[in-house]
Design a protein around this nucleic acid. Sequence first.
DNA 1: CGCCAAGAATACAACGTTGTACCAAGCCCT
DNA 2: AGGGCTTGGTACAACGTTGTATTCTTGGCG
Lengths: 339, 339
Amino acid sequence: MSTTLHDVARHAGVSIKTVSNVVNGLGRVSAATRERVLASVAQLDYRPNLSARSLRSGRTGVIGLAIPELSLAYFAQLADAVIEEAEQRGLVVLIEQTRGGARNRELELLRGPQRQLTDGLIFSPFGMIEEDTEFLDIGSPLVLLGERLPGASVDRVTMRNVEAGAAATASLLKLGRERVAVIGAHLDARLGSAVLRYEGYVQALREHGIELRDELVVEVDLWHRSNGAKAMRELLARGEPFDALFAMNDELALGALRVLQEDGIDVPTDVALIGFDNVDDGRFSRPSLSTVDPGRPEIARMAIELLLERIGGATTDDVAPRELQSPFRIIERESTSGA
Amino acid sequence: MSTTLHDVARHAGVSIKTVSNVVNGLGRVSAATRERVLASVAQLDYRPNLSARSLRSGRTGVIGLAIPELSLAYFAQLADAVIEEAEQRGLVVLIEQTRGGARNRELELLRGPQRQLTDGLIFSPFGMIEEDTEFLDIGSPLVLLGERLPGASVDRVTMRNVEAGAAATASLLKLGRERVAVIGAHLDARLGSAVLRYEGYVQALREHGIELRDELVVEVDLWHRSNGAKAMRELLARGEPFDALFAMNDELALGALRVLQEDGIDVPTDVALIGFDNVDDGRFSRPSLSTVDPGRPEIARMAIELLLERIGGATTDDVAPRELQSPFRIIERESTSGA
DNA sequence: CGCCAAGAATACAACGTTGTACCAAGCCCT
DNA sequence: AGGGCTTGGTACAACGTTGTATTCTTGGCG
C-alpha cells in the first residue's frame, strides 16, 4: 500500500493532523516542524489519498463533460478546451458520450452513478425534450451548453445563434449571390441550434430583400459529414439553381463540398460556401472553408466558471441561473472569396 | 446531503450492512427483506457514495487515458473507442492531454495526483526518452500504446508498423509508380512509429527493386495538418520528381493534398497518395484518401483488457508484461485509384 | 426433547482524511 | 505573581462504505 498521513506522522515524530496541516497549508505550524514534515513527505513519497479526501470534503476535483460524440471534430476541440481550462483550475475531466444524443442515453447519464464521482457536469443536450427538464435536477451543479431546453432554470452557455446565422448568410449575400441554399435545417423542431441558425438565415434574406425559397432548404438530422454529402445530392437532384450555400456546421459543409466537386461545380466561383464551427479541417480543405468561429475557448471558460461558482457557493439553490453568451466571428476563407 | 446506507437501513428497519449486501448482491438475504430494502432504496433514491466505496475497496472505477491531443482526429477517435469499451465494463475514463507530448508534461502526468484517482492508465507516450523508463513505475497498472520506450517492461499494445508501412508503400508501387516520396520521417530518432513506418517504406522499396532516394524523404516533427502542408511545399521546392506519396498519417496526407492541388498536381493521376490512421475526414476529401486502418477498436479493447488483468490480478508484479498487436488493413480509395 | 448446522441478520472496525475541540507552553501586562 | 492571550500542537470523531466476526433464529434430526 502507499504511504499515508500516519506513516509520515510517525516518521516525522508529529501528529497526523500536523502533517495534514502542512500538506494543505492550514493551521499554524512552526517553520521547524514544517520543514521536518516536508522532508518526511518527500522521503516517503507521500501522496494524499483522493478518495479519502473526497469522502471528507465532499469534493472530488473531477468534473463531467457529456457530449454527443468525441469523433465529431467540434466536440473533440471543445473537450480539448474544457480539459485545458479545467486543468488550470486544478480539476480533471471525465468525458462521457451520449452517442448521437439519444434521449434515453442522456437521461441515464444524468442519473448514472458517475454523477457521484463528479463535482458538477457540463452537458451538451441533444435528444432531451422539454418534458424532461425535471431530470436536470441532478443534485450537483450543472451547466448546459446550447439553447435546448429553454424552459429549464439552469446555468447555461449559449451563443448568438440567430445573429451568427444571419451574419453567415449575409456574408454570402454581400458577394452578390441571390440564391442562397441552406443545409442542416430542422424545420419542425422548435428548439436547438438548427432552429436558431435557420431563423438567422431567414432574417438575413429578408433584410436583403431576397425571397425565401423552400426548395433551397434541406433538412438534415445529424450534422455528420456523410449527411452533408447526402443533403447536397438531394439539393442537386431538385434541379433548383443556387449560387451560395450556408451549411449549419463544418462537417456538413465539407461533406457537401465533396459532392459539389464531384459534380464539377466550382467553389466559390459557381457556389460560395460557408460553414459553422471553425473546425480545424476547414483550414486545409480545398478551397479552404469560410466559417463562423463560435469562440470555443470562451465557451469552455464560461462553462467552467459557471460550474465553479455553483460548486464554490455554499447556498447554491437560491442564486438565479445565469446565461453567458460566447462571442462569435465570421472567418472568410477561399470558399467565399470574391471571385 | 444525499441519502446514505444509514437512511435506507433506518427506513427499511434493517441493519446498514444488510442494505449494503442487498445493493451489492452479496451475503445471504431472504427474499422478503431484500424486497423491503429495494423498496426503500427506490423510495429514498439511494445512490452509493463512490468516494466512500473507493476508500474501502481501493478501486475507483476510473481509468486514465493520456494522449497528446484530443483535437487530432486520430486521438479523438481513439478516445471515443476507449470510452465505449470502458463503458461496457462499467468503467469511466479520465482524459488527460500531454499537449504535443512534451517530455516534462508526460513525466508530471505520470506522477500527478490524478494517478490516485484512477485504477490504471492507458498512456500514449511521445516525448519521453529511454532514460525515463523508471518513471513508468507509477504504482498502478499501466498500458502503453505504441512502440516507444521499448526497454520498459510494461504491458503494451502496438501495431505492426513496419509491415503496415511496407504494405502502404507496396500499394503505391503496385500501381507502377517508381518514385515514391514519404513525409513524416524522423530520421535521427531510434524510436517511434515514424522510425518503424519508415523502415517498412525502405523495406518495400527494396523488395520491389526500387532505389531509395533521400531527396524523396521529408522529415516532419509533429504530424499535424499544417506540417503536412509545409512538408509538401518543401518537397515540391526540391524539384525532385515523384509520382506517389506515402504520408505517415492522414493529417499529413490531407495537409499535403491541399498543397498538391494548389500546385495543380492531380491526385491520383500525377501523384498517388496514401495516408495512415483511417481518420474519418479521409472519406470525404476529394479525392478520398487511401489509408491504413490501424484497428482502433481493437487497440482500445486490447488496452483495456490488459489493464483489467492487472487491476484484477492480486499479485500483479510477478506476471510478465504482455504485448498485444492490433491488426491493420489497407483501405484503397480514390487517392490511389488505378487511373 | 435437546442439539447442531445452516440461514439470516447484525455489530464493529477499518479505509485515510480533515474539522472541531482541546491542551500545553510561553509571553505580556498589570 | 497570576490572568489572559497568542502560538504550536494534539486527540478524537466523522465522512459512507464494506470485510470479519459474531449473534440470533429456525428447522431437522437423532
